[in-house]
Simulated scan of single mutants.
Amino acid sequence: MIVKTYTASTTEEAMANAKAELGQNIILLTERKQQIGGFLCFGGKKIVEVTVVLEDTYPKNNL
Rank of each mutant, 00 (worst) to 15 (best):
M1H: 15
I2V: 13
I2F: 07
V3F: 08
V3R: 15
K4P: 00
Y6A: 00
T7W: 00
T7Q: 03
T7N: 00
T7M: 01
A8G: 13
S9F: 13
S9Y: 11
S9H: 12
S9A: 11
S9L: 09
S9R: 15
S9Q: 10
T10V: 03
T10R: 02
T11D: 00
T11C: 01
E12A: 05
E13Q: 09
M15Y: 11
M15D: 06
A16D: 09
A16L: 11
N17G: 07
A18Y: 10
A18M: 12
A18V: 07
A18S: 14
K19W: 08
A20V: 02
A20G: 12
E21Y: 14
L22K: 06
G23Y: 11
G23F: 13
Q24T: 07
N25E: 12
N25Y: 10
N25I: 02
I26S: 12
I27L: 05
I27N: 11
I27F: 11
I27Q: 11
I27G: 08
L28P: 09
L28R: 07
T30I: 00
E31L: 01
R32H: 04
R32S: 01
R32C: 01
K33H: 07
K33M: 04
Q34R: 10
Q35C: 09
Q35F: 01
I36S: 02
I36C: 00
G38D: 08
G38T: 14
G38S: 05
G38W: 09
F39A: 15
F39S: 15
F39E: 12
L40K: 15
L40C: 05
L40T: 10
C41Y: 14
C41H: 14
C41G: 09
C41W: 13
F42H: 12
F42M: 04
F42D: 03
G43S: 11
G43Y: 05
G44P: 02
G44Q: 08
G44A: 03
K45A: 02
K45I: 02
K45P: 02
K46H: 06
K46P: 01
I47D: 01
I47P: 01
I47A: 01
V48W: 13
V48M: 00
E49H: 01
E49I: 03
V50D: 03
V50P: 06
V50L: 00
V52C: 04
V52T: 10
V53H: 05
V53L: 02
L54S: 06
L54H: 04
L54A: 09
L54Q: 12
E55A: 09
E55Q: 11
E55F: 12
E55N: 15
E55M: 08
D56P: 02
D56W: 03
D56M: 05
T57L: 14
Y58W: 05
Y58D: 04
Y58K: 08
P59W: 11
P59V: 10
P59L: 05
K60I: 10
N61R: 14
N61T: 06
N61V: 05
N62R: 12
